[in-house]
């Protein structure tokens, strides 16, 4: 039923002789408005307020000022932080999307063939997702440990290969952190892709088979176009999630060596909790919010209209 039809409905009922009016939306909207306002909107408004002050965590009243924005956005390290954030986010999102889709395709295909172990495969992938970020970071730190007894390097030595400077080489450290984040986030993408794959109308595949399409053609011309809305929604979700990731990085590399793996969320955390600069941290939080919203809008622009509605 369209919105206009819904609006007409009371007048039809009114034909019975009673002067019916639409019930007030406030009673059922108020709980949502209160919860959203109290736990989401109020903190956001407070962050905006702090951004226009010079508040620190060290006490003092603080004063309202516009200079915090300029001072933070002119910081020389910010360009590097944003670049690291871009590489980390892009690498993680692409990796999680591609591997998540690959696993989902394997699971769906295995289910069609009634192969043993599909549930085990799905569950195994989900285990990484339920591991808390800090714990995941510690697990990967043990694996990437470059000591003679470190996890991955020990395996490489067993295979006669040279050890890798997983975390001490600034260029490799970034990809080590991306790898750990892909490991953690792939399960979510797999679940989204799996649900979307199951929703594809099987007659489309039957028609493609009738036309003699190969497996690769079915993937390119049936599966991927059908998955487009799910892929875009998933990318919005995992992009925002990745932009906010700092717990796994703080446990794995602490943002180092130097600033090689210091993403915007970790930098914001450091500015507030190590530099005690609440106002600057608020400006950086607004920057993160703007980036997340901007990317979400870009992705949403590619959504088919009916999905956006």
């Amino acid at each position: 039923m369209s919105a206009s039809a819904a609006r007409r409905k009371p007048s039809i009922l009114g034909a019975s002789g009673r002067q019916n009016r639409l019930p007030s939306p406030y009673p059922w909207l108020m709980p949502v408005i209160l919860v959203m306002g109290l736990f989401y909107l109020y903190p956001v408004i407070d962050v905006f307020r702090y951004a226009f002050t010079d508040l620190t965590l060290l006490g003092g009243e603080g004063h309202y000022t516009l200079s915090t924005f300029g001072n933070v956005l002119r910081r020389p390290e910010l360009a590097q932080i944003l670049w690291v954030t871009f590489v980390f986010t892009a690498g993680s999102v692409i990796g999680q999307q591609v591997i998540g889709l690959a696993i989902a395709l394997v699971v769906v295909r295995a289910e069609k063939r009634r192969l043993f172990g599909t549930t085990i495969l799905r569950t195994t992938a989900l285990v990484a997702w339920v591991v808390p970020g800090i714990a995941g970071g510690i697990i990967w730190k043990m694996l990437f440990n470059e000591a003679p007894f470190g996890g991955l390097n020990s395996l490489l030595r067993l295979m006669g290969m040279a050890p890798v400077q997983w975390l001490s080489d600034p260029d490799i450290a970034m990809w080590s952190v991306v790898l750990s984040n892909i490991w953690r986030g792939t399960a979510f993408s797999m679940v989204v892709m799996y649900a979307a794959l199951k929703a594809i109308d099987p007659t489309l595949y039957e028609a493609a088979e009738m036309d003699g399409a190969t497996a690769r053609q079915k993937l390119a011309f049936v599966t991927l176009p059908q998955l487009r809305p799910a892929i875009l929604v998933n990318m919005i979700l995992i992009t925002i999630q990745t932009l906010n990731t700092f717990d796994a990085i703080i446990a794995l590399s602490g943002g180092g060596p130097g600033r090689a793996t210091e993403v915007l969320s970790l930098y914001t955390f450091n500015v507030v909790f190590r530099n005690y600069d609440l106002a600057a941290g608020s400006v950086l939080s607004i920057l993160m919010l703007a980036i997340s919203l901007g990317l979400a809008l870009v992705y949403a622009a590619f959504l088919p209209k009916e999905d956006r509605s």
Binding site: P170, R259, A260, R274
Partner: peptide, 17 residues
């Protein structure tokens, strides 16, 4: 913050960055 900056500096120096 001095300590934080020394940590960042040490990372850059030890890795030759």
């Amino acid at each position: 913050e001095i300590s934080n900056q020394i940590q960042i500096m040490m990372g850059k120096v030890l890795t030759g960055a």
